[in-house]
Design a protein around this nucleic acid. Sequence first.
DNA 1: GGGCGAACTTAGTATTGGAATG
DNA 2: CATTCCAATACTAAGTTCGCCC
Length: 566
Amino acid sequence: MLKHVLPLAAWASSHAHLPPASLRGFLTFNAMRLHAAGRNAKTAKIRWEEEQHANGVKWQQLEHRGPYFAPPYERLPRGVCFYYNGKPMKLSPATEEIATFYAKMLDHDYTRKAIFKKNFFCDWTEKLKKEAERIQEEYGYCIIDGHREKIGNFKTEPPGLFRGRGDHPKMGMVKKRIMPEDVIINCSKGSKIPKPPPGHKWKEVRSDNSVTWLASWTENINGAIKYIMLNPSSKLKGEKDWQKYEIARCLKGVVGKIRAQYRADWKSKEMKKRQRSVALYFIDKLALRAGNEKEEGETADTVGCCSLRVEHLRLHPRMDGKENVVEFDFLGKDCIRYYNQVPVEKQVFKNLQLFMENKGPGDDLFDRLSTSTLNKHLQDLMEGLTAKVFRTYNASITLQEQLDALTNEDDNVAAKLLSYNRANRAVAILCNHQRATPKTFEKSMQNLQAKINVKRDQLCDAKLELKRAKADCKSKRDLKSKATLEKKQKHIEKLEEQLEKLVLQATDKEENKQIALGTSKLNYLDPRISVAWCKRFCVPIEKIFNKTQREKFAWAIDMADEDFVF
DNA sequence: GGGCGAACTTAGTATTGGAATG
DNA sequence: CATTCCAATACTAAGTTCGCCC
């Protein structure tokens, strides 16, 4: 140890007598000058004895290599990963480099200073955002028939652990990384074929214009194909959506006849027909899904209409003062529970008893029915009719009826919006669109209630002030006190309106606690009904459709006037 | 008429970003 | 000005339908 310390100490002391650094260069230069002059004074012109340049000109020639650059960033080895809030994050070379700048300083005092941290994160997140924008711009759009249109999902799904919904037998399985070698590209012949990442190849490039997808791959958990497709705002998707609602409107014209027929079939001699007619009744009345068969052990145990089992229904000849009540209790799509007590026609009740006779709880209720036979039958009743059209039709017609029943022309916009949401809610309940109560629900409800209380107090104070102003006005009878009185009155009106709006908000929120409105709004309600309602009752469309929804429903906003009827 | 694969729609939840708030 | 809150968005799982094959 001493061996190393001593020479260093000696070095330090030997330099202790030197002049300050700023003077050293000057001294050296003069020493050199003296030396050169002594040796060469008569023969060579010395550099500093050359002619002076003209005023301001510093040189006639200058040649060099430019700066030597800091080497380009070399990526961290694979396996070293950046974590944000505990989650690994893939960074580009540029953003990774910036992160390493900060990482190098982690045990420096600087990183405990607020300004240092703030400035770093500000710059770094700006870089990250710029990159995300660039990626969206480059990969997020396609050209289809001469138009640049947004793609829905242009990113492959990252690897990770599969999370099924509910009791999924495959939960926790490893979802593999998608490589270019897994991906099929679909694009037109003669178009610029996308380049796979360097060193990679696509699985296949094809030109199939009978489908709408841009790229596809097979995922390893279920062996299902995943697609990259257009955004709902695209013409292709919009037209399909429009067509869907037109088919539902066709059903409106024939649904009376269809209902009469399935009611007649409740008494059919054929067991197949009886099952079909009762199933169709459920699909129509309760908006149940078709209910395809599922492979056991591959997915969570969920059912729809055709796959109902005996254990999912209980028959009550009498219940809460009602006759022929069917109690449904089963898990539907996404393991959302469907629970309902429904009084049904006597003949339906009898049929159900018949279907359940001599069966165990795990047996199919409709053992002579499948979704494909049901849909074949529906196709005969109306072109384009399938089980799911009933959901669309009943959802849309319910919205229209509820809007008619609930909207009050004289209401203000806030009250009209509550009516709209209630109509929307009736549909969501019909379709069983549920959600988990938001984690912060209780708290945010309390906050809203507190706001209401504050507003009430303010209103109370304002009323007292008004009283005083009235008295003041009576005694003084001057213009100034009259103006004050009017101002106080205006103030009260404003407060009352604000209070009402808050109370309406609270009502809406409470009623909506476990109900999801978005799914029906996006997938089941003919947007033209909403557009017409907005026009008829002077409600701005932005109040019911946000930006994305307006883009998706551009076709409807464009074509529906206030007279539109579903 | 059942089994299967492909294509497309429908679904709830986790995350994010920007407005509201103290 | 930082924190809180919530609507909008991102994500991807889970349905339906259809056509093909036997």
